[in-house]
């Protein structure tokens, strides 16, 4: 069953075409890694999935709902898709527990108790229950990102989108975040992850998408992507040789 279905999506900023005829599919329980050079449109593509970025052509179907349809209740659709950002984007004026509960209460209409219980459950899962009463500014980058993941999970999402979740982190904090993501993937969460962490891709991805200049250049099974390098496009091989060097 297809959870996210991107069909011939194109997007322009004025004259500049950011996305060109992008088509791909993420099945339920599938983990898809999106990689590609800077400026190739990875963030833009992933943000079209929950309509943070509008697009002019094509359509995206998320669990049967069309994102491009003007009649779609976008806030409702977004509340069902979790998103984790490069710069965490915890709300700095709210405590960790408030960060975890505010959308559950205001968007999903859950009671204070239920929201708190759920929030603390996921905070515990990412190993940060002891920090519940703190504010985001008091946590390290890696801890903030784990809270951000817990915040998204507390909404009981049908899929999770990650936009370079580890690239703003100090190297020693990358793994604590990746560990949480690996666990999620292994539990069968549907995930679309923009990341250059090829170790993560190798470990849990089912498919790898490579983008260049707004186009999806490669879209194949992980084994094929990493195992049969010679069959990859010139651009993909260049990119891989650069990031796999170290």
């Amino acid at each position: 069953m297809s959870m996210i279905s991107i069909k011939n999506v194109s997007k322009w900023y004025g004259d500049f075409q950011v996305l060109t005829d992008c088509t791909t599919d993420v099945k339920k329980g599938e983990v898809v890694v999106v990689c590609g050079p800077s400026g190739s449109g990875k963030s833009t593509l992933i943000k079209t999935v929950n309509a943070l970025e509008p697009f002019q052509k094509g359509d995206i179907i998320v669990d049967g709902t069309s994102v491009g349809d003007a009649k779609t209740d976008l806030p409702k659709l977004r509340s069902r898709v979790g998103m984790v950002f490069q710069h965490f984007e915890l709300f700095p004026h709210l405590s960790i527990t408030e960060n975890l509960t505010i959308a559950q209460e205001r968007v999903l209409g859950r009671s204070k108790d239920e929201a708190m219980q759920k929030g603390l459950h996921y905070l515990d899962r990412v190993g940060l229950k002891a920090h519940a009463h703190k504010f985001p500014g008091q946590l390290s980058g890696g801890q903030q990102q784990r809270v951000a993941i817990a915040r998204a999970l507390a909404m009981d999402p049908i899929a999770m989108l990650f936009d370079e979740p580890t690239s703003a982190l100090d190297p020693e904090m990358v793994n604590e975040v990746l560990d949480v993501m690996v666990e999620l993937a292994q539990e069968g969460m549907t995930m679309m992850c923009v990341t250059h962490e090829m170790g993560f891709a190798r470990k849990v991805a089912h498919r790898v998408i490579f983008m260049d200049r707004g186009c999806i250049v490669e879209d194949c099974a992980k084994e094929e992507f990493f195992g049969n390098i010679d069959a990859r496009s010139e651009r993909a091989r260049q990119f891989l040789s650069k990031i796999l060097q170290h």
Binding site: K47, L52, P75, G82, H87, H93, I102, A103, V107, A152
Partner: peptide, 29 residues
């Protein structure tokens, strides 16, 4: 930052909620 607005929307908040609960409290501070 635009990221705060995006995070609010990504959690399913509408414009009014994003402004009232996330953007304005930080802006007023």
């Amino acid at each position: 930052s635009k990221g705060q607005e995006n995070a609010a929307y990504a959690l399913g908040m509408n414009y009014g909620q994003a402004m009232r609960l996330i953007i304005l409290p930080q802006a007023f501070r």
